[in-house]
Design a protein around this nucleic acid. Structure first.
Lengths: 201, 201
DNA sequence: TTCATTTATGACCCACCGGTCATTTAAGGG
DNA sequence: CCCTTAAATGACCGGTGGGTCATAAATGAA
């Protein structure tokens, strides 16, 4: 009887290798040879599991953003604005930076396949909806000022936080600088959401 | 005596063509042949004015961001927070979107030359400093709440606004959607800076 | 018109890389 | 041990695109 392998496990292994290579050299610069070497396989083997380099990237993107979604979903729904702000910090781990930088390669006009932008755009749309769901009860509870639309505020917050990560990615800043900037941004944001400077205590 | 051309004018003409091609196809996908065709020249001619495709891109980036800097510098210093917010709108024209998308190509790890990231990063550093200079008097005037550091707030604002533009670029939204989101973000930001909801009138 | 010099050209070169496929290797049942 | 079948291999192919260079064209002074 024939040799049998776990196809799904093999795909995971290859995607791990691809992630490492793409982070190191970027999607365009990394070659299938690189990925194969990283995975301990021959180039031809990659094509038994992925139709093309592009399909491999799309699978990688899908897996990456599914993972983030899962992690963010696991954070309990905040009861107060403070808890919400803490949740934001948790959803922005420092290791997101390198990956963000990688995705630049794929968001430009040079990447013809619209599915890449759909995956990434879809994630942000989901994120905005997720925040909006958390905002609505906070607005009712008076934690967030009542003249804000939960949807509009959530979209604004999503854009702001993404901007923060992008900046980290561009500047390649150290962790401590990141944390300083992040906290300043979140403090400004918190005041904006609450509608006034936080009460003492 | 020899044929004479204005080297600088020729470089400008080539950069215009390169900008058009890079916007259309992206930096990686656009070929030197494309750029030459767009400029009405032969491929070899390009190399009389630029050492390589990469040098051409760097010159393009420099020119582009120098131009933005000049435009933003031309906006009069704001006397009130309202004026400041209006200045922000002016510095975010819609035609920035396509260009922003193009720069993704160049910020990823695939682009080895650090000068590209330096040019773009340098622009944002300048922008943050520029905003900080405008914040300081506004804080003294009580237009912005006094517990904020001008520098930290300016950096946060810079990241937030860039995030907004990036999102537009990723989603490829229409102008009206952009304006809605931009206004929501700026309103949130204004409240955060002022330290409370704006007084009526 | 001639000539020196600069500028422009595009055929050509060559390295590279995504993708293929004939061949080899590995697994395991009989 | 052999055979069947799945899996793995890597030499090879073909297209591509950045960059070169021998040649041609343009310019303007003499």
């Amino acid at each position: 009887m024939p040799k049998i392998v776990d196809r799904e496990e093999m795909r995971e292994r290859i995607l791990d290798a691809a992630m490492a290579c793409f982070l190191e050299r970027g999607y365009h610069a990394a070659t299938m040879q690189d990925v194969a070497g990283q995975a301990g396989l021959a180039k031809g083997t990659l094509y038994l599991y992925f139709q093309s380099k592009e399909e491999m990237l799309l699978a990688l993107l899908q897996r990456y953003f599914d993972d983030i979604r899962a992690r963010i979903s696991a954070i309990p729904a905040p009861q107060t604005l403070d808890q919400f702000m803490m949740g934001l910090r948790l959803s922005m781990p420092v290791d997101r930076l390198a990956a963000t930088r990688l995705f630049f390669d794929v968001l430009g006009p040079g990447f013809q396949d619209p599915r890449a932008a759909e995956i990434i755009g879809g994630f942000f749309a989901w994120l905005a909806d997720h925040y909006a769901d958390q905002f609505a009860p906070l607005i009712r509870a008076g934690e967030i000022r009542s003249d804000l639309s939960a949807q509009a505020a959530a979209q604004a917050v999503t854009a702001m936080l993404d901007g923060l990560v992008i900046h980290l990615a561009i500047f390649g800043v150290e962790e401590d600088v990141f944390e300083t900037r992040r906290d300043a941004t979140l403090a400004l944001l918190e005041t904006g959401l609450r509608g006034g400077v936080a009460p003492p205590g």
